[in-house]
Structures are given as C-alpha cells and as structure tokens.
C-alpha cells in the first residue's frame, strides 16, 4: 500500500536521464508507465531509493522510420498509442489492444514492458516474433540489442546498470507476410498463462518461406520456438503439416506450473495456440 521512502527526479532529456542514472548508480530505477514498478514498490517488493521519471522526455515518444526501413517506436510510447497507430504490424497492434485494461494501455509503455521482462508479459513474445531490436543508451554508449539477446533469463535482461532503452525497432513485415498473437489469459491477473506470437512470409506459390514463432507465459522467459519454425518451412496454408509443426512447440522446453495451470496443461496450450496463431498469421499473409 505504502512504498518505502524514495527520491524522485523528473528528467526532460535522454542525457539528463543518463546522468541521473550515472549519479545514483544502483539505487536508481527508471520510472516509465509505472504499472509494474509502482505495484512492486507498494508491496515493498522493490524499494529503490531514487526514481528517475522518463515520462516527460519528448524524445522517448512516438514513431519514426530509420534508414533500413525499420519502424522505430520510442520507449515511452504507450500501448494505446501503438494500437492506434498504423504500424502495419498486425501482431503488435493486436497485442497492444488486449494487454491489461484501458488504464493499463494508457500508461504501460513498450520500453517498460520489455525492460521488465515479466515471464507472463505479452509484448516480449511479439517483439521476438517480429525480430525487434532495442536501441539502448548507457554508460558504455549506444548499442542495438536484438530481442533474443536482450532477454537473458527469468526477469533478467541484457540491460546493465545505467542503461536506458531509448526505442524499439521493428523491421518492415514485408510483402506476403503476416503476423498474429494468441493468448490464453490468467483469469485473475489477465497476464498470459500462455501466449504465442507468429510471423510468416509466403513465397510465390504460397508456401512458407520464412517464419518466426515465440512463446511467453508458459516458461521462465519468452523465447523463440525454433523447432516449430523449422518444421514450418515449405508448408502450405491449411495443410496438416501446420499442426505437426505446432506439435513441436514444447520440444526442449521446461514448462511452468502454478495454481492456475500445471506444466502439462501449459504444454498443451502451447501446442494449441501455436497452431491457431500460425493459421491466423498465414491467413493474413496474402
């Protein structure tokens, strides 16, 4: 209910954020939408001594296109803004329209969600399937981290102390491609018990020539389902091969168990949602 005492800074530029983080070191935490951090502080599961609010940094908001044609979305951009924008990335629009409720979508940010890396969060799966890259600035300068390298483990990311996610880049989906997100909600929290995102591209004959599938909610952290991706190559829409490929979703994975769903059920859901999301993505890839 009542967090421990903390100092609060409102930064107005990326440089100011970085220097505040530098100045306060490990004691400082970035405050974005606050919809993961503040509940944790109120429950005293997190007690940062310093909060650096990045909400007023104009450079961290909005959409642009970078040289390679990628869509660049500022880290402070909210789900609602993304769902409303015409990004051309169906899975991204979809996920940003269903996460949490209206209040959450008006506050939660793409940078915050990916940095937090909750094992049941939705966005990490979509960012993986869409091959996103994170633009990071920190004490060691500026770098681009592919989503798959960014996720290190359970609630662990490649962010080093003092690092700020500045933006997230999505390569263009490309012609004859489609993407989708399917989620099975935890009836209490609304987070994913299991969520699967897929992106596919079809060749001139309609077969799958490229594919990325990623899972969240069902294991320790969001990850690509490579055996499914490989099995999908060359598949035709509507073929039984899609279900066979989806059946590989659990290969090599250790599924979570909690009071809502055991590992067996999560493994089964992963199979079902993988098939459903692939079918949806393929339909969109016209």
């Amino acid at each position: 209910m009542y967090p421990a005492k903390f100092d609060y800074y409102q930064a107005t530029s990326v440089d100011e954020v970085l220097s505040l983080l530098q100045q306060h070191g490990e004691d400082a935490k970035i405050l974005a939408g606050g919809h993961s951090l503040i509940p944790m502080m109120k429950l005293r599961l997190a007690s940062p001594a310093v909060l650096v609010d990045i909400g007023q940094v104009a450079d961290l908001r909005g959409f642009s296109t970078v040289a390679d044609g990628s869509l660049r979305i500022g880290a402070m951009t909210t789900y609602h803004e993304i769902a409303d924008a015409n990004t051309g990335l169906d899975a991204l629009t979809e996920v940003c329209s269903i996460m949490g409720d209206l209040q959450v979508r008006n506050r939660g940010t793409i940078g915050g969600n990916l940095s937090h890396n909750d094992p049941a969060a939705d966005l990490p799966a979509v960012a993986l399937a869409l091959d996103a890259q994170l633009e990071i600035r920190g004490p060691s300068g500026e770098r681009l981290a592919p989503m798959e390298e960014f996720i290190v483990g359970l609630m662990e990311t490649a962010l080093a102390p003092g690092d700020l996610v500045v933006a997230v880049r999505f390569p263009p989906s490309g012609p004859a491609s489609g993407s989708a997100y399917e989620k099975f909600e935890n009836p209490a929290s609304g987070y994913a018990i299991c969520g699967v995102a897929a992106w596919v591209r079809r060749d001139g004959t309609g077969r799958i020539e490229s594919c990325r599938v990623a899972l969240t909610g069902a294991a320790d952290y969001a990850q690509r389902l490579r055996p499914v991706e490989e099995a999908m190559m060359g598949q035709q829409a509507g073929s039984e091969g899609i279900d066979a490929a989806a059946a590989k979703a659990g290969e090599g994975l250790q599924f979570l168990s909690d009071i809502h769903a055991d590992d067996v059920y999560r493994a089964h859901l992963t199979h079902v949602l993988t098939r459903r999301v692939l079918q949806k993505a393929i339909e969109r890839a016209q």
Binding site: S257, D258, H260, A261, D262, V264
Partner: peptide, 13 residues
C-alpha cells in the same frame, strides 16, 4: 494423451 501432470495445481489439476 499419455501426458501426466507432474505438479499439483490446486486450480488446475
């Protein structure tokens, strides 16, 4: 389907 629950799940098992 031959799969067995390996963990006890009060709401799920």
């Amino acid at each position: 389907n031959g799969m067995q629950a390996t963990n006890e799940t009060p709401l799920g098992g």
